[in-house]
């Protein structure tokens, strides 16, 4: 196993930067994400106006993979519509399931492609996918509160 596939520069930078680790002033939705067996415990906050995600953040604790994943995800979906965010989440989850994605689909995931290497490590896949499952839940909640 080459650790660079897992802890590349993008992943390490996001895991340590903390620029998305904060509370929003007026979040529209706050959704918990948990990996009980490893102790990843994050709360995802989204501020949604109409069908658009104006801002997003997270709080809580998690491993480097889950922290990087949620941070990259927030940068990716900020400013997108709920539908676009849900589609990106589905693409990301497909990538971690090792489903073949087209170059165009991989391009759409931008920095999140840095987490592709996690799909080779079954024990850590759920660290990477948990934030995106949480995002799908948050999108559902946001739609319900409209």
């Amino acid at each position: 196993m080459d650790l660079h596939d897992l802890y590349g520069d993008i992943v390490r930078e996001h895991s340590m930067s903390g620029h998305n680790l904060r509370h929003l002033e007026h979040p529209s939705v706050v959704v918990p994400g948990r990996n009980p067996s490893c102790g990843d415990e994050i709360d995802l906050e989204l501020s949604v106006e109409g069908d658009r995600i104006k801002d997003g953040s997270f709080t809580g604790v998690g491993c480097a993979i889950s922290r990087a994943s949620v941070s990259i995800m927030l940068d990716l979906v900020r400013g997108r519509t709920l539908d676009e965010a849900a589609e990106l989440a589905r693409l990301f989850l497909a990538m971690e399931q090792r489903e073949p994605l087209t170059d165009r689909q991989l391009d759409a995931l931008e920095e999140a492609v840095a987490l592709k290497g996690v799909s080779n490590m079954p024990a850590r896949v759920k660290c990477a996918t948990m934030p995106w499952h949480t995002l799908l839940n948050a999108v559902e909640v946001a739609r319900g509160t409209d």
Binding site: C63, A64, M121
Partner: peptide
């Protein structure tokens, strides 16, 4: 995080 430690040790 302990899981990152364990992964690095595992490698």
């Amino acid at each position: 995080h302990p899981h990152d430690v364990a992964t690095i040790l595992d490698s």
